[in-house]
Design a protein around this nucleic acid. Structure first.
Length: 433
RNA sequence: UCCUCGAUAGCUCAAUGGUAGAGCACUCGGCUGUUAACCGAGCGGUUGCAGGUUCGAGUCCUGCUCGAGGAGCCA
């Protein structure tokens, strides 16, 4: 066949000592030292130091001089173990080809402010920290899907363009559908419920949108959500699955992303404690505990950010809060048997102060009750006609939840803001790059 | 939308109401094992915008713009 001989990936250099290899990548850093120059080359799989000596490779040495940061280049030469080199290996350059020179790269090897970095996100992604976060995000998504498929779930994606609001709780981004108003989805849940009645266990995975002028570390205008939905499953069953899903995801990240976690200087001890069962608190008990801590909280009032933070700092593992007052939750949640003022809803709070990463509930199975709730919420029943059909034609006990991808990544990676957990964050006042 | 803070060189930041500076980046020179190398020199400014007070404003006042942190909302 005569397969083309391509460059060797940096990650594959260990074990190739003595071999003459070709490495292609970008110049992340250059250190001149008289007749010897050190080039740090990044190819996406890793970074390696390349050494160029004037007397050993005069042509390569001349080309390396004046080469700007982020120039694309290819070096050829033997690999050897070198304890003085970062990573333990280096390439002794014999040939150097400049594929594409770069000049005046804006991100210098020094500290930068967040505004500058976000303005240059398209370039910032090349750097070690954001690249490590993207690897962790990839592993979180991969592991979550692998787990669900192993449990017999089918991925069924929900539409992003909507004619009506799903929950009617938050502001929606409005767009135009041939003269009709249309909205960007804020949740795939209602569609997941329809699919669960067809396929039993399903999940949706995709972007969701909230047109809120939020400016906090846990909010994005556009974020990714994983929403499993299960027929013949009550809240207990859903919470048990959530424990296993979150544990599986954390285990896979610990197993596969060691280098990335070290780059981010993430203390992995709290992650190693993530194992079922997670502690559980009823809303009423959590509220009582919060008031005992001196935090203000009215009767039947939903938790705010300070409450969530306090709760999630008090436990060293993810914490379920459940049995919320009906008034603070959306219309579609099943009331608790014997406590009609409480609903079968559970939020999962990540520890270390990160707060809510999952919101879930058992859904109302009865058509009449659902219709009443729609009326109470002031929603247009006609718009939910298809949703009511799910109860008219064989409504069954079913539950589901939404897991926020960026919040989960931020927690696992130890980030201080969800905007770093997505390649190109969409926040209030920031639509580019 | 509200509260707080901020905006000075490409970047990170200094500068009693009195001549706008440093480090990094960049350019040039030196150095044969660097690790954000180091040493020397150079380049680099309508101090976010518009007004006002003052002999004099980066600094004080007013308005605006943009950003950051937080609240609300939620994944």
């Amino acid at each position: 066949m005569g397969a083309a001989v391509g460059p060797t990936r940096v990650a594959e250099l260990p074990g190739r000592e003595g071999e003459r290899v070709q490495v292609a990548g970008w110049l992340t850093h250059r250190r001149g030292h008289g007749a010897i120059a050190f080039l740090v080359v990044r190819d996406g799989s890793g970074e390696v130091q390349a050494v160029v000596r004037r007397d050993h490779a005069p042509e390569a040495f001349a080309r390396a001089e004046g080469l700007g940061q982020e120039s694309a280049l290819r070096v050829v030469g033997p690999v050897r173990a070198q304890p003085r080199a970062p990573g333990g290996y280096e390439v002794e350059v014999e040939e150097l080809e400049v594929l594409s020179p770069a000049a005046d790269y804006p991100i210098a090897p020094k500290e930068h402010g967040i505004e500058f970095l976000l303005d240059h996100r398209h370039l910032w992604l090349r750097h070690r920290r954001p690249a490590a976060v993207m690897r962790i995000r990839d592993t979180v998504l991969w592991a979550a899907e692998a787990f669900l498929r192993g449990e017999g779930f089918v991925r069924v994606d929900a539409p992003i363009l909507m004619g009506t609001a799903a929950e009617n709780t938050t502001q929606l981004f409005r767009t135009d559908y041939f003269g009709e108003p249309a909205y960007l989805t804020q949740s795939g849940q209602l569609y997941a419920e329809a699919a669960a009645m067809a396929l039993g266990r399903v999940y949706t995975l995709g972007p969701t949108f909230r047109a809120e002028r939020s400016k906090t570390r846990r909010h994005l205008l556009e974020f990714w959500m994983l929403e499993p939905e299960m027929a013949f499953c009550d809240l207990e069953g859903s919470m048990a699955l959530q424990e296993r899903l979150v544990t599986y995801v954390v285990e896979r990240v610990l197993e596969r992303c060691g280098e990335a976690l070290r780059t981010l200087e993430r203390d992995t001890a709290p992650l190693e404690r993530v194992r079922p069962p997670f502690p559980r608190l009823r809303y009423d008990d959590a509220a009582e505990w919060l008031r005992a801590q001196g935090l203000a909280l009215g009767p039947e009032e939903d938790f705010g950010a300070p409450h969530e933070t306090a709760l999630s700092q008090a436990f060293d593992r993810p914490l379920f809060v459940h049995a919320f007052p009906r008034a603070v939750k959306p219309f579609y949640m099943e009331p608790e048997p014997g406590r009609p003022d409480r609903v079968l809803a559970a939020d999962l709070l990540a520890p270390e102060g990160y707060g809510e990463i999952i919101g879930g509930s058992q859904r109302i199975a009865d058509a009449d009750l659902l219709r009443r709730r729609l009326q109470e919420a002031g929603l247009d029943e006609a718009a939910y006609d298809w949703y009511l059909d799910l109860r008219r034609y064989g409504g069954v006990v079913h539950s589901g939840f939404g897991l926020g991808i960026e919040r989960t990544v931020a927690w696992i990676a130890g980030l201080d803001h969800v905007r770093e957990a997505v390649p190109f964050p969409r926040t209030y006042n920031r639509l580019r790059p």
